[in-house]
Amino acid sequence: MPPSITLRGVSKVYRPPKKPPYLAIDGVDLDVDQGRFVSVVGPSGCGKSTILALVAGLITATSGTITIRDDPVRAVRTDVGFLFQRDALLPWRTVRENVSLALRFRGLGRREIADRVDPWLARVRLAPFADNFPHELSGGMRKRAQLAQSLVVDPSVLLMDEPFSALDVQTRNLMENELLELWGASGKTVLFITHDLEEAIALSDELVVMTAGPGRIKARYPVPLPRPRNVSEVRFAPGFVSLYERAWSDLRDEVLRSYERSLRSAS
């Protein structure tokens, strides 16, 4: 399989006004093969969200190159799906209108939009709420609406930035299973960002551990757990604990470093 996403020596320096510039990520090399589910874990402030924003073209790299399916990223990429941590649904638009947005921006007609949106509303089980506004839905329902919103144009790459971290644990496990189900046979490439090691292992084919800022890739682990998986049960599977322990020993030092740094900058 050819790589779907590649990063070559990618660094990003932020220059906030009236503050010293700082290096968020430093020389990141990463290949994500087509159809793979890859998770990036790291302590807060390690620049893992920066990687995702760079791949989507929302910000530009200070150095290095990024390509999606051999196409260098130069501007915002509209051929990817992006799931944000925060609510990204337009609050003044109904669920149906929100899910229709990408098709409307592409100039499709009314009928064609309805033909493609309705099946998606049914798939994420939001058909009865199609004409509700986002604030009338639960957190899990809003996430499902955002999934439908991103997937309605059938992107081959899905970028997810801690999408479920604001949900309660039960809803979160349900959403993770639904994500695996939707992704299952789709052949889509997923780059998933999280600070939760357990979530990362349960979902992915491959695990990438980052260092505390500036973010560099510290270690990569294949996840040899069979699919289909149930995320609330996979943690009891043989192999889960040993992988967790190895990855955690990498991650622990970085989490401590990140924590100590935050204490120093706070004082």
Partner: peptide, 25 residues
């Protein structure tokens, strides 16, 4: 909310779509 702007841009919004779908509302 910058998240709203980023989201619609990835969904394919052009400059005027951002204006009419996010900023003006």
């Amino acid at each position: 909310d910058q998240t709203l702007v980023d989201n619609v841009r990835i969904l394919g919004a052009r400059r005027r779509d951002v204006t009419f779908e996010v900023l003006l509302p």
